[in-house]
Simulated assay, not measured.
Amino acid sequence: MAPQSEAEVCDVIRSGGPFAIEGGGTRRIGVAKGAPLSTRGLSGVTLYEPGTLTLVARVGTPLSEIDALLAAEHQRLAFEVPDLRGLLGRVGESTIGGVVAANASGPRRVASGACRDFCLGVRFGDGRGDVVKNGGRVMKNVTGLDLVKLMAGSHGTLGVMTEVSLKVQPLPETVVTLRVPECEADVAVSIMSDMLGLPFDLTGAAWQGGTVFLRLEGFETSLRYRVGLMRVRLRREVEEIWGAETCTPIWCGIRDVEAFHDRGGDVWRVSVKPSDAMRLVETVQPEDMMFDWGGNRVWFLTKEGADVRAGMTSGHATLIRVSDETKRRLGVFHPQSAVLAGISAGLRHKFDPDGKFNQGVMG
């Protein structure tokens, strides 16, 4: 089923179920049960006001279309959307609805926040086929229960989104990446934690292949001043890489976990305190790994069937690329506590009392 309007979406919901909600099919990691319900027919930007940094789009709008529209006005989505097609072996076109549903957020989250932090409003069809709308086009309009934040990261389990409103961000004048080579993982965590704890306004802090990458964005004069202070603080060999043309490929590689493309094994995404990251690494003994968000996000490449969660005492781990058998055995998302599981079940029952949406995706 591929409804072409919000009204058609609600008609489809009322007519049956369960449904497996689909966007561009590029980033789903859970296994949904039910008849396919595609949102790709709900396409198009309905409002874009560069002066107020506001964009409203139907959920089936291709991400590439939105990126091109913003670039023409020297603006961007601040949360640096990951492209997981290479990692997951997918084809297709990512949609803005899928981005919001997954709360997809890249390296810039350390400075700007996640996708949900830039969501101003949402419209969706609930399990009864009624239209629910929340928020607006400016931050002050978000009052009461902030449903747009709730929908971001819900992976289509609470309703079928039809339209989202987003705050966008101007492009910086320039960008510089500091490359700090020959760093072991523990040293990298220490460096990134130190740099993020100081007023340098980093917009990226990652480690892979023995190298720390630190990114700053803004006015060139300010960046050169900050880079000078960082060099003094680091007291290590540092390479400066200036300009978007040379920096963008570096951060796209980190954002999209390119180091694990075309390599066998399971891929886990772990959120953990940097202070706990090294203890987890010693327990897991991965085939390969990389850190993002200053060490708060850890990517593990492990042997097939390995259980990263068995060695965790804090944080949460998500299965990103594994066999269906491993998904069934371990579950894609980290198990919730009894209290949180009860709250989640209550929310799902409130918005989707008959269990029509993406059964099985989040357990």
Rank of each mutant, 00 (worst) to 15 (best):
Q4H: 09
E6Q: 14
V9N: 09
I13R: 03
R14S: 15
S15R: 15
A20G: 03
G25H: 04
T26M: 02
T26Y: 04
V31H: 15
A32R: 02
A35L: 12
G41K: 09
L47W: 09
L47N: 07
L63Q: 05
S64H: 15
S64P: 03
L69S: 01
L69F: 10
A71G: 07
A71L: 13
Q75N: 15
R90W: 06
G92Q: 12
G92D: 04
G92E: 08
T95I: 02
V99C: 00
A101E: 00
R108K: 15
A111Y: 10
A111N: 10
A114N: 08
R116L: 02
D117T: 04
F118L: 11
V122T: 01
D126E: 13
D130V: 14
V131R: 14
G135A: 05
R137L: 07
M139P: 12
G144S: 11
V148Y: 00
M151F: 06
A152R: 00
A152E: 01
S154K: 03
H155C: 07
G156W: 01
T157Q: 02
M161C: 04
S165H: 03
Q169S: 13
P172H: 08
V176I: 09
V176D: 02
L178W: 01
R179E: 06
R179I: 13
A185Y: 00
D186R: 01
V189F: 00
S190D: 06
I191N: 00
M192R: 01
M195S: 11
M195V: 15
P199V: 10
D201M: 12
A205G: 07
A206I: 05
A206E: 07
A206W: 00
G210D: 05
L214Q: 04
E217Y: 02
G218I: 04
F219L: 05
L223C: 10
V227F: 05
R231Y: 05
R231P: 03
L234D: 07
R235S: 15
E237K: 10
I241A: 14
G243D: 03
G243K: 06
E245M: 11
T246M: 15
T248Q: 15
A259W: 06
F260A: 04
R263H: 08
G264Y: 06
G264P: 09
S271D: 12
S271M: 13
R279H: 00
L280K: 05
E287C: 10
M289T: 05
F300E: 01
F300S: 05
T302A: 14
K303E: 13
K303C: 11
A306C: 12
V308K: 00
M312R: 05
S314H: 12
G315V: 09
T318R: 13
L319I: 07
R321Y: 05
S323F: 14
D324I: 10
D324M: 13
E325S: 10
T326C: 08
G331L: 09
V332C: 11
F333V: 09
H334R: 15
Q336V: 10
V339R: 13
L340I: 13
L340T: 11
L340S: 14
A341M: 15
R348W: 10
R348V: 06
K350T: 07
F351Q: 02
D352T: 13
P353V: 05
G355R: 03
Q359G: 12
